[in-house]
């Protein structure tokens, strides 16, 4: 009868002979060096069986003996690092090889393991540095040459990605600035969330609301400056009576509201149960949220004209307007208790 695996836990009742053997192996009377060495061999056996967890326990026991043979300790640390490595514990593995290298600076296996850990941890410059340290000891160590080549390649690819991201960020920033000065030139005011001091809004323009533009709105569209230097806005139309909306992704600042309304309501929308949303029947409003007042908009006006209104504040990068039907009971209810500035 042969044992295929080394027994982990031995019950002296069941297996007195084995327990006896084990006590010989780990006899406390032997020197710490001998005991540590026995644990190392035990760990290596587990390692060969790919039982890394047990191997770690054995190497740890070996290290606990605190023997004076630093080369042996370096091997214990390096081997435990290898077992940790195969379990995916790259940080723990790295800590072990760092100690191993301190104990024995020329221990190539520790250096190789360290380089592999850094590679896994995606710290490519360190991986290259460790390989080069190792190549100083053996300039032709195959593993080090290979790992260095791989880490160097990845390092350079990473640097390229960083450069690309930086350039992209820079471009976006300058686009934002151009957009921002276009808005400022037109005297269009942006609504500043979380600020109650509305008078300061236009002063804070620079700070603020670049963010409102950088983040795309819910529809995934953004304001943009076309090749002729005109702004195109995403615009939201709200129909409170039916809880419906229309979204125009690029409303040219010089087009008039009526132009869009004529197209949008060329046919009656399916939700218009009473067939009353004819272009000529519609009234446009915007809301001054800070003062909770409503302003009627002349549909003959262009978007730019309306946005330049002294009480218009663009919110979240998307101007929005209310559309209601003239003389309709819903409208009367809707405006109840609100101040409405009607067209003269």
């Amino acid at each position: 009868m042969f044992m295929k695996k080394s027994p982990a836990e031995i019950d002296p009742e069941q297996n007195p002979a084995l327990a006896c053997l084990q006590s010989i192996i780990f006899d406390e009377d032997r020197s710490p060096e001998e005991q540590a060495n026995t644990y190392k061999n035990e760990g290596n056996d587990y390692f060969k069986e790919t039982n890394y967890k047990k191997a770690i326990i054995s190497y740890t026991e070996g290290l606990k003996k605190k023997c004076s043979d630093q080369d042996l300790n370096a091997v214990l640390y390096t081997n435990r690092a290898a077992a940790q490595f195969y379990l995916g514990n790259y940080r723990s593995a790295l800590n072990d090889v760092i100690i191993a290298r301190k104990l024995k600076p020329t221990h190539l296996k520790a250096i190789i393991r360290g380089a592999l850990c850094y590679l896994e941890l995606k710290n490519f410059p360190e991986a290259v540095a460790w390989c080069e340290e190792g190549l100083r000891i053996d300039s032709k160590e195959k593993k080090l040459v290979d790992v260095r080549a791989k880490a160097d390649r990845l390092k350079r690819a990473e640097q390229r990605d960083i450069r690309k991201a930086k350039l992209k960020e820079k471009k976006e920033q300058s686009q934002k600035e151009v957009l921002h000065s276009a808005i400022k030139e037109r005297n269009i005011k942006l609504f500043l969330e979380a600020s109650e001091k509305e008078d300061e809004i236009s002063d804070d323009l620079a700070e603020m609301s670049l963010n409102g533009f950088s983040s795309e709105n819910a529809m995934g569209t953004k304001i943009y400056l076309d090749e002729n230097g005109n702004l195109n806005w995403p615009v939201l139309f709200l129909y409170p009576e039916y809880g419906q909306t229309d979204f125009i992704s690029a409303f040219h600042e010089d087009s008039r509201f009526i132009d869009h309304i004529l197209v949008m309501f060329a046919e009656l929308p399916p939700w218009d149960l009473e067939s009353k949303y004819h272009p000529s029947n519609l009234e446009l409003y915007f809301e001054d949220e800070a003062r909770e007042e409503m302003y009627q908009v002349n549909p003959e006006n262009t978007l730019l004209q309306v946005l330049q209104h002294q009480r218009y504040f663009v919110k979240a990068g998307t101007p929005s307007f209310l559309v209601l039907v003239k003389h309709c009971p819903f409208s009367k209810n809707y405006f109840l208790g609100k101040k409405v500035h009607r067209l003269k």
């Binding site: 032709k140 040459v145 260095r148 080549a149």
Partner: peptide, 10 residues
Amino acid sequence: LDRSGCLVQR
């Protein structure tokens, strides 16, 4: 240029 080493690369 010894291919087994890593001199020129460095």
